[in-house]
């Protein structure tokens, strides 16, 4: 996977992970992949819902020791 940009949202609480993700995705081109790293427990459902309704694609989501990593492809 070719990652264009990485967003470190670790330690941020709701609503910041999603606000920052939105800002970051605005800075990449369609088809490019944004990596988001977060620790907020709500991030998983938030990121999933957000990508679904804003026309992007969640390529992969994983969790390791309370750290969530998401790969979002811009639509």
């Amino acid at each position: 996977m070719n990652i264009t940009k990485t967003l470190d949202a670790k330690g941020l609480a709701c609503p910041m992970p999603i606000v920052r993700t939105k800002k970051a995705i605005d800075e990449v081109n369609p088809g490019e992949v944004l990596e988001v790293v977060a620790t907020d427990a709500g991030a998983k459902s938030d990121l999933t819902a957000w990508t679904n309704s804003s026309g992007h694609e969640l390529l992969e989501a994983k969790e390791e020791d309370g750290v969530y990593t998401f790969y979002v492809q811009k639509g």
């Binding site: 709701c14 609503p15 999603i18 606000v19 993700t21 939105k22 957000w50 309704s53 804003s54």
Partner: peptide
């Protein structure tokens, strides 16, 4: 304000 900021992230 949390809801408002979240909605803005939803465009």
């Amino acid at each position: 304000y949390i809801i408002a900021n979240g909605a803005a992230a939803y465009d």
